[in-house]
């Protein structure tokens, strides 16, 4: 460890404390009763999309980010392009 990094070192306990507070707020709340919320949301959203277009499982990306104030669920569905005329 260099001298600089020694002096710049942030103590780790406050980081642990903050991470836990955010994680547990989520686990107790939204995810409390449904630990597989993300999987469930993905399936249901996909079902809606599939009513209109055919999508493969591997063309769906789901990302989640949980922060203290706001959480985001990012769902990216790759919809296939139009089938060329004559291919049917």
């Amino acid at each position: 460890m260099s001298l600089m990094s020694f002096f710049n070192r942030r103590t780790s306990a406050p980081v642990a404390r903050e991470r836990l507070q955010i994680l547990l707020a989520h686990e107790r709340g939204v995810l409390g009763g449904k630990p597989d919320l993300v999987a469930q949301l993905r399936e249901e959203i996909l079902a809606v999309v599939r009513r209109h277009v055919m999508v493969e499982h591997q063309n769906v990306q789901v990302k989640m980010n949980r922060d203290a104030d706001i959480s985001t669920l990012e769902i990216e569905v790759e919809i296939p392009g139009p089938t060329p005329v004559g291919a049917r």
Binding site: T11, S12, A13, A16, L20
Partner: peptide, 16 residues
């Protein structure tokens, strides 16, 4: 270690 900020303190755990 808790005093040096290397370990969660009693109050941190209690609060959580």
């Amino acid at each position: 270690r808790a005093e040096r900020g290397e370990m969660l303190k009693v109050d941190d755990v209690l609060e959580i």
